[in-house]
Write a protein that binds this DNA or RNA. Structure first.
Lengths: 169, 169
DNA sequence: TCCAAACCCTTGGATGTCCTAGTATATTGC
DNA sequence: GCAATATACTAGGACATCCAAGGGTTTGGA
């Protein structure tokens, strides 16, 4: 990890914005920049925890999603929608997970356009173990206190709904 | 933009966590996942706003940083530290910005190892215009209300300090 | 003085994301 | 029933990020 900076670069940016006459958007700019940086830190922690399993976060998310699917299998387009990533990203992840023997593709029984992804036995095992490690090493030590976690869930939930991610309440 | 989902996939994941005996980390998991998704949404907005300038967010951040530098120039390692990205990412961004004529490399006057990056006149102009558009189209319409912006700045600021990003108060 | 250790930047490789375009299969409408 | 439209997945390309490794420059201790 790089040595800590003597000053918060985002707070500095916010000051710069204020001094240049953009005080009205300085705070949202700082909040958004902080989200970008926080995501970077969290992603690094997650990838570090998953590395022993030969998984990346993108692949883990797909494994986890499949492990919760009732039937144990999902069409690729459904996975793309639920993970909210581009279909080509799912193709990429499935290619690699299939290469590792953690998932398998199979044709949809009635729709010739659709491909189903299914966990293999090994994939299910790896998903379980990786989840346990993530829970212990990352989610269990997030550094956010309980009240802040609630705030984040509320604030970002509202944001995501307004951004068109979902419609329920 | 894809059609909204009928249900919040992150809230569903949180429920799944709770039902599988991981209730103690379900909320932080949801908060962290929400941060990842929010970053994705914001990044897409930012890149959309910057596209007319031929800029990406990474390149814009470097331009903005240089535009606030007193001397108008920064060593690459300093830019890497302030932007908190890997040195190779800065090399990559500088290569492209230099190719577009927005920045120029120059040797450090006293340290032969160091390369200075400097805004060109055009770079300074583009930085100004891009900032104006970002302020209007993204930061000015973030969708976060003022109180939530303050909460985000506080919560994520604490997190980043604890993560070792910086040391000041 | 001089060589080893530290530091700076770049190159090359692995991954992930998105976009555009192309192929194959379904569905719709006339 | 058949053509036009829509949907599903994949291939190729552009970018960004990180890591590992290499070459040049400085610094510092013997």
């Amino acid at each position: 990890m790089a040595a800590p900076l003597p000053r918060d670069p985002i707070a500095d940016a916010q000051r710069n914005w204020e001094e240049h006459g953009w005080a009205d958007v300085a705070a949202p700019m700082a909040a958004i920049t902080a989200i970008m940086r926080t995501q970077q830190i969290l992603l690094a922690r997650i990838e570090g925890a998953l590395k022993p399993f030969g998984l990346t976060f993108a692949r883990y998310e797909l494994l986890a999603l499949l492990s919760f699917a009732r039937s144990g299998a999902l069409p690729m387009n459904k996975a793309s929608a639920l993970l909210q990533v581009h279909p080509t990203s799912v193709t990429n992840a499935v290619d690699r997970l299939e290469g590792s023997g953690l998932v398998a593709r199979s044709p949809h029984p009635t729709d010739g356009r659709t491909t189903l992804i299914e966990l293999t036995a090994e994939g299910r095992t790896v998903a379980k173990r990786a989840t346990a490690v993530l829970n212990t090493e990352v989610f269990g030590q997030s550094g956010f206190d309980a009240a802040d976690v609630d705030q984040l869930i509320r604030i970002l939930g509202t944001f995501r709904r307004n951004a068109g991610d979902f419609t329920d309440g």
